[in-house]
Simulated scan of single mutants.
Amino acid sequence: MTPKYSILMVCMGNICRSPTAEAVLRHLVQEAELGDRVRIDSAGTLDYHVGSPPDRRSQEHATKRGYDLSKLRARQVAASDFEEFDLILAMDWQNLGELEEMCPPQHRRKLMRLMEFAPPGINDIVPDPYTGGPLMFERVLDQVEAACRGLLVFIRNRLATAPS
Rank of each mutant, 00 (worst) to 15 (best):
I40T: 11
G66S: 07
R149P: 01
F137R: 05
S58G: 13
I88Y: 07
Y48W: 11
A160W: 10
V29Y: 00
V144N: 00
A160L: 11
T63A: 06
M115Y: 08
R39L: 07
S58M: 13
Q59E: 10
R26L: 00
C11Y: 14
L151I: 14
P127T: 04
V29D: 01
A43H: 07
P134Q: 10
C11S: 08
P129V: 00
E31H: 02
E83S: 03
R73D: 11
R26Y: 05
P54T: 12
N95D: 07
R75A: 03
G51C: 07
D124T: 08
F85V: 09
T20S: 06
H27G: 01
S80F: 12
L34R: 01
V153H: 04
G66I: 14
E22W: 04
L135P: 06
F82P: 10
E145A: 00
S58F: 15
G13E: 06
V126G: 04
A146P: 04
I122S: 01
R158Q: 12
R158G: 06
P129R: 00
P19L: 09
L69T: 09
L89R: 11
L72H: 11
L96D: 03
C16N: 13
S58K: 13
P163N: 12
T161S: 07
N14V: 15
Q94I: 15
H49D: 15
R139W: 10
D142S: 09
Q76C: 14
K4V: 15
N157A: 02
A78W: 08
P105Y: 08
M1Q: 07
D47F: 11
F154W: 06
L159K: 01
A78F: 08
L96G: 02
T2K: 14
H49V: 14
R65H: 09
Q76N: 13
E33F: 00
A23W: 08
L159T: 02
M91A: 05
C11I: 15
D86P: 06
V126P: 08
R158V: 12
M12Y: 04
A90S: 02
E31P: 05
L8E: 05
Q30A: 10
M9K: 15
A118E: 09
A147Y: 12
M115H: 01
T63F: 04
D86W: 05
A90W: 02
Q143G: 03
D68E: 12
T161E: 08
L28W: 02
G35Q: 02
L96P: 05
T2F: 13
I40N: 06
I155D: 04
L152H: 01
D81R: 13
D81E: 11
